[in-house]
Every structure is written in structure tokens, then in C-alpha cells.
Amino acid sequence: MPDSATVERTDAELIAAVRGGDTASFEPLLRKYQPRVFATARRYARRESEVEDIVQEVFLKAFYKLDSFRGDAPFEHWLMRLAVRTCYDFLRAHQRNREMSFADVTDEQTDWLDHFAANPADASENAAAARELVEKVLAQLSPAARLVITLLEIEDRSVKEVAALTGWSVPVVKIRAFRARAQMRKCLEKLTRGKYL
């Protein structure tokens, strides 16, 4: 028979304990879910200090809003919704209106674009230059566009899942996704206009 101290408590038990005033019971929840929240925050913030601030805010909100968790869905879903909304608030608060031009593209990225222009099928998706380039382009998008592109295209989620995570309705997600793709294409056109168009 396992020792009672080593028996892992379920999320529901831990949540009930936290609601009852036992703050220490929040620690196992934190340990369990912080890697996922860190990975989510790193999609939207580049600096590690910003990522840590976002994650801290998510867990503080989770702690203080725990009473609003009804338990209909798993705690993880509720927490990820909170994380996505906190990331969206972060994007809105740190919105920059800097136009990117071809001058902002590094030599490696230019090489990758040259390679893509010459032979699109051969350009590697695993190249660091491509990854940096997409990061730069995403940084140019509006917060809503960046969020919807990240969730739909990069995390490969369904429209319904995006609607549940963001709190937007399904038609709003579809409209925002359409606009976001157009906005991204515009950014790419601006970026490549001088050299390739």
C-alpha cells in the first residue's frame, strides 16, 4: 500500500484544498503546468524577463480566480485560456508600430529568401534564418492577427479550439484569421518589394 504522503493528489483535490485556504496546495499545480505556460508565453514574448512576467501573472490570476473555475472542463484548459488571454493583453500593451523594410533583414535571411526565390521547394523550413524571419514578420502584425496566426497556423489548432481559448466567437476567429493572413502577406510584400517584386 502506498504511503499517503507519496500519493499524488488529483487536480480537483488540490483545487479544493486551495479554495479551502491551503495556499501550499497550489505548488503541485504550479509545478505540473508551468512548462506548458512557459512554452505558450515564449510564443509571444522574446525576452526571458517578459516571459517570466507573463507566466507569473497567469499563475497569480489563476490563484485569485480559482473560485470562478467550475470544473466542467479540465483545469489545464481553463489555465491555458487564462494564459492565452494574458499573452494577448501583453501583445496589446507592447504593440509597436514599426515598419519593417528590407534593410532589417540580415544577410542569412536574405540568403534564405534568395534561395526561396530561386527554388521555393528547396528552401529549408528548418533553417534558422527562416525561423528568425517568421519571428520578425509576426512581430509586425497586430496583436489579434499575431494571436490567431500563432494558434491556427503555428500551433495547428482548430477554429473551435481558438474560439474557446480566446473567448471570440467562431465567425470572429474566421474573420480575424482571414485578415491576419492578408496582413502577413502585405508585410512579406513590403519586405521583399525592393528586391524580388
Binding site: F116, E125, N126, A127, A130, I149, L188
Partner: peptide, 15 residues
């Protein structure tokens, strides 16, 4: 291609 590049490089979940 850029979406695929972003997908192939998921962010770290280090804490």
C-alpha cells in the same frame, strides 16, 4: 514555408 518553419521550431518549455 514560414509557417512550416515556425511549426518545426516549437518554443522551449524550460522553467
Amino acid at each position: 514555408k514560414l509557417f512550416a518553419a515556425a511549426r518545426s521550431n516549437p518554443p522551449s518549455d524550460d522553467v
